[in-house]
Nucleic acid binder design. Structure first.
Lengths: 348, 348
DNA sequence: CATCGATGTGGCAGCGCTGCCAATCCGGAT
DNA sequence: ATCCGGATTGGCAGCGCTGCCACATCGATG
């Protein structure tokens, strides 16, 4: 391959050589080529300040001729504020975070901002490290997930002076901007729904709650609301791994072996619930007759199951977009509760 | 919220004030505080060059006292190469791309690089724009998806002189580094598998092939191999939307209405196939007795269905990691074919 | 006792761009 | 012809850091 030899690229080969090794084109080169001053080129390229139509044409021609690409590193250093937003998410495996990213990057793009993404693997120490790393790019703002951070992270965030948006949770004090919904209330609503439907032997299948604080809040809300309805959890199964279809399937299987007379299962999210549904299908357990299932997140896949999954739809994409816009426009610190929607489905 | 009032943060409040409005701490401040030269601070912070243990301690104490965060914008501008890799993916909706990101960011982190991500929505013009945008950060390398780019993108990539890795496809000429597997061969293998199992009335359910070139290659390989086996597609249904569970479910429904005697369905990927499976479950079509199903990608969810999905497992995470490592270490242009694995499953 | 290399250390010129300010130009008003 | 104010333009000092070079310092060596 290094030899190439595919004729389709013969024409480009020359361009390639041009690019490699040669000193990169700078704004000064463009200025010389267009026979104008550097500041004029800068003004034209940013459409900022005033310049004549003729000058614009000259500069643009020179840019095209030289193939100039502005150096944003230099631009950002010279100007005061960067047009960068750092985004910190715990995982890329769970589709909710790509959803959040999708909303945020779309909004950011509109505002002319770029995003840098970092992943923490649900580890608070790693979060501290990546926050430090992102701050060293002097971003205009930072989007982080959840309200729980270790003290080092909080200190860095506050000391940096950059705007911070905390996402997907409103159950607790925030540092600056908070956009999300109440996980606790979602858990409560789920419990009330199941209790209201007459289920009495309700089990919980979840993943690692020490790492996923939002899942822990749903769990707490669920238990409390169950208690308020005069019920208690008939059993629970927590897998040590992150949430997954597999964890849901095996978790339900394990729990049923221990508590056979369960009549409903509350899962820490839709992935887990889908796994549970697969278990029921594979073992001929009728849903919701023999066992009701309830999830969380409102993923598309749940809606399309033969029986739509009972779950709670969360506005993840909107949360990302809202946070991004708030950071870009820079208003005061606020809490935006986007709420959630209970989807009755057909599995509970 | 802007008033705060939650006691948990009272201690930090002061730190917050410190951060806001105050001129950011620079390396020169640290040097003054530690009573050493700027270059000494720089050397200590990068553990580069020589300095005494005493000096290191002095500098580190000063850094801690002032809460100094190095400015990488300035650092990158001053030094020659950046430690940034740009990653261009078509979508965040399809889990394969977060998988790719996961592999890449993990490997990048190990090598001490940071990534900047951009999304094209499967649009070649948008790809050209985001490539330009990423190049303006003067990255050490770029990871892009697929081998098909418009001429503007190719020109920019070549002219920039940065290393480029093209991912998830090896069916065609690459620009520099290519890491992936043959989509064409995957399509062929799928067709041979279905034909070998005795299916004769085989249909295709896919999404927009003009945008997703790799899906188009699988489709072409599938048709060709079917032809070589003396068969032809009994029918096909292409939805205009991106691939999704919903598109698969409705696509299969539509196709079956038109071609009722289908005995196998080949889907453009596992999401689509899962949708098809849901359709079969909902309508009591036995799988694979009445209808066989075949997917692509080897997602976890397919493995966990009551009957494991017949599909092709692709090494997406490894592709991301391999590409990242090759870019960081900077070897010669190569093509790395990671291959794929046919999962027989139980649906075909 | 001069000389030497190894080790620490500081000074300072850029990296490529933006922001400020001063200079210049132009058309119309005086 | 002269003057004025706005539009247009160029010069240049940084932004905060790194890389290079020069300058100690010091024990070991001839």
């Amino acid at each position: 391959m290094d030899e190439g030899g595919n004729e389709a690229f013969a024409a480009d080969e020359e361009t390639l050589r041009e690019g490699i090794g040669r000193r990169p084109i700078t704004l000064a080169d463009v200025a010389r080529e267009a026979r104008v001053g550097e500041s004029t080129v800068s003004r034209v390229l940013r459409s900022h300040g005033s310049f004549s139509e003729k000058t614009r044409a000259r500069v643009e021609a020179a840019v095209a001729r030289l193939g100039y690409v502005p150096n944003r590193i230099a631009g950002t250093l010279a100007s005061t504020g960067s047009r960068l937003i750092g985004i910190v998410i715990p995982s890329l495996t769970n589709i909710v975070f790509p959803d959040l990213l999708r909303g945020a990057t779309a909004a950011l793009e509109q505002e002319g901002f770029q995003s840098v993404i970092a992943v923490t693997d649900y580890d608070q120490d790693k979060e501290e490290a990546v926050v430090g790393s992102l701050l060293s790019w002097r971003p205009a703002g930072l989007i982080v997930t959840g309200l729980e951070h270790n003290s080092g992270t909080r200190r860095r965030l506050l000391a940096s002076g950059v705007r911070v948006a905390e996402l997907l949770d409103v159950d607790g004090p925030g540092l600056d901007i908070v956009v999300g919904y109440s996980n606790r209330a979602a858990g409560e609503a789920s419990a009330r729904h199941l209790a209201g439907r007459g289920y009495r032997r309700i089990g919980y299948i979840g993943h690692d709650l020490t790492k996923d604080k939002r899942a822990a809040k749903r769990y707490a809300g669920f238990r409390d609301a169950l208690g308020a309805a005069g019920l208690a959890l008939a059993g629970e199964e927590r897998v040590a791994s992150p949430s997954s279809v597999e964890a849901g399937r095996h978790g339900l299987e394990t729990l049923l072996a221990r508590v056979p007379d369960l009549d409903a299962a509350y899962f820490s999210n839709d992935d887990m619930a889908l796994g549970g549904y697969f278990h029921c299908l594979a073992h001929g357990l009728s849903v919701p007759g023999r066992l009701a299932l309830f999830g969380y997140n409102g993923l598309d896949v749940g809606r399309l199951m033969p029986q739509p999954l009972a779950t709670i739809r969360t506005p993840r994409v909107e949360a990302g977009a809202t946070a991004a816009r708030l950071l870009c426009t820079g208003g005061p610190a606020t809490v935006v509760d986007l709420g959630f929607e209970l989807i009755e489905g057909a599995t509970a």
